[in-house]
Structures are given as C-alpha cells and as structure tokens.
Simulated scan of single mutants.
Amino acid sequence: MKNKILLLSLTSFLAYGQVGINTTTPKSTFEINGSFSTPYKLITTPSYNLLSSDQYLDYRGTSTAAWLLPAAQASPNLKGRIYEIRNESGFNIVLTPNGTEKIDISNTQLNQSNFLLPSGYYAVLKSTGNTTGSTWAATLMSNGITTSGSNGNNNADGFDTSILGYIPSKASQRLVPTSFGGSSVTELGCKKWSGTGANGHTYCAYQLGNGDPYSNGKTFYDTFIFAKQVGGYIVTLPSNAERNWVYNNILASGSGYTLLNNIWIGYNKVSYPGNSNKFTWITGEDWTIDWTTSPNSTPQSFFYTGEPNNANGTEGSCHIFSFYTSNSRQWNDVSGSATNNASINFNQVVLEFNED
C-alpha cells in the first residue's frame, strides 16, 4: 500500500515538472527532504571493471591499480552517470575509458586516454553524454592532504597543479625508467629537506647517459616530459633557503651527488594571449622577497648579472650554470630547445616531489 501511495504522489508532482519526497512543495526538479543512500563498495583487487551497480568505490589495495570505465557511448548512453572514487591505498589508480573514449581532467588536460588518481585523493567521474571525444569528466579533490609549496612554509602557498598540468606522485611511488630519449637513466639518490624552515619535499638526482658532459643533452621540454614520466617535476627554487639546501645536499660533491653539468630549473617564459611574455615557476609558486634591498626589494633569485636577458629574443628557459662555467652555480636563461650551454650538456636532472 505504501508503494502505491508514493507512486500516486510522484505522479501528481510530475505533472508540474517537480518531484518531492517528504515535501509537498518541491522547489527543484527533484527534492529530497531527508537522507538518501547509494551503494558503497570496498575494492582491494588492482584490476577492476566498474559496473552499472557501482557508485562509491573505496580502493584499499596493495599495488598500483588499473580500472576500466564502462562504455559510455553504449546504448543506452550513460549520460549523467556518476562514480565517486576514494583512493585510500598507498598506490595510484589508473582509470581508463573504454575503447577510444577519452576523459577530461582539467582545462589543460582535455581528451586524455586515462586518468591517474593518486593515493590519498578523491575523484568524481561523470559521463558527459558525448558520442565523440571526452565521454567522461573528472573532478579531483584532495582527501585531507595538504600539498605543500616550495617556499618553506609547509602549506599550499602558490603551488598549482593546474599550472603544472599534472598531479605529481609521491616520491615513494616514482617510476624511474631504465632509459629516456635514447639515454640510460641512473637515479643517483634522493633526500628529503626536513627540519625547521624546511618544506618537507624530497629531491632526487638523475644522470642521463654515462656522465660525459659532452653527450646525451636534453632540452627543457624533454626534461619536463621526463619529470612527468617519473612522477615529480623539474626542481623549483623560489627562495634562498631552498636553493642553498639543494646546492649543498644534491648538487655538491661529497655532501651531494656531484652534479657538475648544466641543470634545468622550472622557471620558464609563458606567452600569455594578448600580453607580453612572462617568466613563471612551472608550479605557479611565488618568489620569496628580500625586503631589505635598496632601492627596490628583490626576489631571492640567483641569476648571473644581467640575466635573464632574452638574448636574440629566443631565450625562454632557465638553468643552473655548470660548475665549469660558474663555480658559484648561478643561473642563466637560454633557449628551451638547447641541449647544452658553453658546450656542457644538460644531462643531469634534479626532480622535486611534494610528498614522500
């Protein structure tokens, strides 16, 4: 009898284009004046195909997961279907649309062939109803994790994954290839900056090739791709404190990994539509400012005198001078397509990771 009364009530409200449960005056197309339930499923297997009966999935597996989304273009079309996915494992989930379907992750990551959901993050996936291109749209949120910036404040000041264009992995989840761009890859080591005033980030050093300063040079753009593949990002140094720590613990001989060649840093020129070119950190971070300099306050940068100077109008990427060019390892701007500077190649890399 209760089901019949509810059906009659819903039918009467449908005549007016609005449906209410526990209310006779719905203000929206569908209004529920009370709690409601959707399915919850705990997943521990790394391989999983999402079902039509799924809604909220909680991954607690012990390895990287590969999950397959259903065919959204199938008949009937899945337009509007929602999946909520919580990743409480210590590993990534790689979500792949069916067949040739794609997924939109952000305004800079459209029509992607898959979506990486890092450990500790939560995502909502919604079917767009499109019959071509992106059939899914993703909304990514942190699940109680603070993504720290590189300014030594242990908070999210300035760091913007939408500017970087991808979400960095944890250092413990990095994937180091055996080779990249025809060069062997050797991870020389990793260290975490901890203690008072530290940002808690981990920095890893890599050698591309055999260490010969005259071979295996990589462009800034190659190095950016390498960083993304590993899971970190090209090191950013917006404060003297961070630069000094990296120089003493990563670059130096003895206390570091003896990185003597040219090294790219994540400070690059952006050509904004309708505006002049502007240098920016690839993570969107701001400089730490020295307010005691005269006549103007200055960022705590380490550029060589007169740099960056955009020589010939083609220099849009920045690097640390090789030890052979500058004992103090100051900075310079060059073309991002360069593979060397002063005949010393870009074959040593420092990557930064926000989380362990």
Results as ranks from 00 to 15, higher is better:
S162I: 10
K269L: 14
F302H: 14
S215W: 01
F220D: 03
Q207G: 04
G306I: 02
L351C: 05
P76V: 12
I5G: 00
T23V: 08
L78A: 13
T280H: 12
P97Y: 00
N111S: 15
N210F: 11
S294L: 11
T223M: 11
N49K: 10
F115H: 05
F353K: 02
T186W: 01
N107T: 13
W67M: 11
E352M: 13
Y59K: 06
A137V: 01
S343N: 12
G34E: 07
A74W: 00
K218F: 13
N49W: 01
T146R: 07
L237R: 08
T288K: 15
W281Y: 12
I250P: 08
K269G: 05
E84D: 09
S172V: 15
S75C: 04
W67Y: 15
S255D: 06
Y56P: 00
W331D: 11
A227S: 15
W136S: 02
G284H: 07
N310Y: 09
L6M: 13
E84Y: 01
T108I: 05
K192V: 13
D290I: 04
S134Q: 11
T288V: 15
I265V: 14
S113H: 01
Y272P: 03
L259I: 14
E187W: 04
Y166T: 02
K192T: 15
Q207C: 04
S335N: 12
N332A: 04
Y59P: 01
E187N: 13
G120Y: 04
I344E: 06
T45V: 12
G232V: 06
E187H: 05
G195D: 11
T298V: 13
I234P: 05
A137I: 00
T236V: 15
D104F: 00
T29C: 01
A65S: 14
S239E: 07
S142E: 07
Y233A: 05
S322L: 04
F279G: 05
S276H: 02
T186I: 14
F13Y: 09
T339N: 06
L110Y: 02
Q18D: 07
H201Q: 12
I82D: 04
N22C: 10
G211A: 13
H319R: 02
S326K: 12
V246G: 02
K192L: 11
A205D: 09
Y122V: 11
T178N: 14
I265F: 11
Q112Y: 01
P70K: 13
W136F: 11
T236A: 03
R60C: 02
A205H: 09
L69Y: 01
K41M: 09
A338R: 14
N262S: 08
T236D: 14
Q300S: 10
C190K: 06
I5S: 07
T339C: 03
N199G: 14
F323C: 00
E315W: 11
I167S: 00
E242N: 10
Y48Q: 03
L117D: 00
K4L: 12
A252I: 02
E307Q: 15
P295S: 11
A171K: 08
I265S: 01
Q55C: 05
Y221V: 05
N111V: 01
T305L: 04
T292V: 04
F30A: 12
S253N: 13
I163L: 05
K218P: 06
S53I: 09
